[in-house]
């Protein structure tokens, strides 16, 4: 009995050690430890907490992106949706809504609808996800400039302000939100029939459809979720920033995809977990922070960022061999 227990325990331990989420987590820990030796303030609790808070925004955007990528698609409109959320929320605030909850819900409904429209294009019009979401991003970008122009809009929403600045029990509200969303996402992804259908669809859409997976409605739901979480990230980023402007969401496109891939989810679909995306998001923020410490020109910063992501991909993002 004991021997049997020991051996399964051993197998389980080695499986955890070899799993991609754990690998990504280990890289984060290694980078944090190395960086705190090099730079004094880096390892301070306050700084690390700040990093995770920034990571929450990427993590939220990447939550929807993980769903979409596992289902075999990709969402290139998340940056535009983040901006839509951060700009339309201040415009939607009105007097009869003292807590600001109603306008937040309205904005989240709006971004979810945008996501569902993406899904409609992909599922019913059969436009390739990359084209559909890129065109949607182009469309939204034009619309945003028409609506908001070049000026920044300030949010007067108490709940948004609380979300971006409050620290109940020393933990930023954004992190609490991220933890809550993560718990829901992981449950939905790995413990519901819906989650199983997403993996089936991403692995083999034809087989999934023949086995009775409602491909159309699942696709709509997946892109709707991506719109929702991108909208949520927009609300959070607005709260942390205080102001929304055109282009506020731009950094989150590459970040969301990179977090997903760094976390071990296959860009080809059908394989992956949000548990890897979470450390992936923190890793990205850490890289950005390190680059800021280096104090280079914008050109070098951009080169460093791209190179580091490429380097990390080499560590953890490789696709299986063809033969």
């Amino acid at each position: 009995m004991t021997a049997w227990n020991d051996s399964t325990g051993g197998i389980r331990a080695s499986a955890i050690l070899k799993s991609r989420p754990f690998l990504t987590l280990a890289i984060v820990a290694a980078v944090w430890i190395a960086a705190s030796f090099v730079s004094r303030g880096f390892g301070a609790y306050g700084h690390l907490r700040y990093l995770v808070e920034l990571g929450a925004v990427i993590g939220l955007v990447a939550a929807g992106q993980t769903f979409v990528v596992i289902a075999g698609g990709i969402d290139l409109s998340v940056a535009a949706i983040v901006t839509v959320s951060a700009i339309s929320l201040p415009l939607l605030s009105w007097q009869a809504d003292p807590t600001g909850l109603v306008s937040i819900l309205a904005v989240l409904a709006l971004t979810t609808i945008i996501g569902v429209v993406n899904g409609l294009g992909v599922a019913l019009l059969r436009v390739h996800p990359m084209i559909m979401t890129l065109a949607m991003a182009t469309f939204l970008q034009g619309l945003l400039i028409i609506i908001a122009g070049g000026s920044a809009v300030t949010a007067e929403n108490p709940l948004v302000h609380w979300l971006g600045n409050a620290r109940p029990a020393g933990v930023p509200a954004g992190i609490i939100l991220w933890v809550a969303v993560s718990a829901i996402v992981l449950t939905v992804m790995h413990a519901t029939p819906f989650g199983a259908r997403i993996f089936a669809m991403g692995a083999n859409p034809l087989a999934a459809s023949l086995s009775g997976v409602p491909v159309t409605s699942t696709t709509l739901a997946v892109y709707g979720i991506s719109g929702f979480t991108a909208g949520l990230a927009g609300v959070l980023v607005l709260g942390m920033n205080g102001q929304g402007y055109v282009g506020i969401g731009d950094p989150y496109l590459l970040a969301s995809i990179a977090a997903v891939v760094l976390g071990g989810t296959s860009i080809l679909g059908g394989l992956g977990t949000y548990a890897g995306t979470i450390p992936g998001a923190v890793l990205l923020v850490t890289i950005t922070a390190l680059i800021t410490v280096v104090n280079a020109s914008p050109g070098w910063r951009s080169i460093l960022f791209g190179s580091l992501i490429l380097g990390l991909l080499l560590l953890s993002g490789r696709e299986q061999a063809r033969r």
Partner: peptide, 14 residues
């Protein structure tokens, strides 16, 4: 054997 989308997205930064 890295996914082209991500490599070229990172490449666009470099």
């Amino acid at each position: 054997r890295l996914p082209a989308i991500v490599v070229t997205l990172a490449g666009s930064f470099i």
